[in-house]
Amino acid sequence: MSNENKPVVFHADNISKSFNAGKHLKVAVKNASFDIYDGDFVSIVGSSGCGKSVLAKMMLGLYPPTSGDFTYYGKPIANTKKHWNEVQSIFQDPFSCFNQFFSIRTQLEDARFILNPRPSRAEFAERVDAGLRAVNMEPNEIREKYPFELSGGQMQRMLIARAFALRPKVLIADEPTSMVDAHVRAGILDYLMKIKKELNMTVVFITHDISLANYVSNRIFIMHDGQIVNQGTPDEVLGTTTEPTTLKLLDDIPDVNKQEWIPNSHLARKAKIAENA
């Protein structure tokens, strides 16, 4: 698939982001350059602390880059309502995403105020309901619930439902299914892909699980230590790569087709016993 004639959504030219951590500077993102095109489903993959969440917050305009050019449709990214009308996100830590003094329902419906034109309360409530059903939640069950009455997985699904109800042009999803049960995960991702296609959304999906990235996206960025070390289509990145971070990420997944995931595990021992016999 060629990207040449599609408009560029995010253009990053040698961007870096560092934070003051006590006396020294902590560099979270180092000289990253990339383009994300309209309609892309990009996955950013890396282990924890590699800077992928910081990059996500930079796309949302919550952190300005320390150096380099970072633009959204050709304009510098700003933390303005106009930006969030189009670019929305699913944050990583669902436990800190809700105000414990208000019911979940009102907090989900509050999201309509960012939309321009603004949908009516009833219309948006319907969209929230549809979003909740899409993530296997019964809207009536959670109507009066407060955040601390839900599990991490349930709250995470609330955040996904919020994003679905908003129907943004660009969605930044930071580990959206990390606390969701494994068998629900695929269903949610399927719905995400479906709604992406329907609305021609651009999605940036952040995960540490390369098999999820491969399942959903058409382009994959591999991050290590703040740098993007490998980028391209799943085939290019995962198929014939020799890049060490990518190989390690592939190697670390416990897949049922692998004979020996951990050298000293039972499975490995059993295989050895069978060999000797």
């Binding site: 949302l60 969030w84 996100s89 944050f91 995403c97 809700f98 003094f101 105020f113």
Partner: peptide, 26 residues
């Protein structure tokens, strides 16, 4: 540093509303 403040910003709430609705109750 809590994400619900960031989320409130992304819901379009102004600084005063965030202060009253999302900080003061706590």
């Amino acid at each position: 540093s809590r994400d619900h403040i960031a989320l409130a910003k992304m819901n379009g709430d102004g600084n005063l509303k965030i202060l009253i609705k999302h900080v003061l109750p706590y």
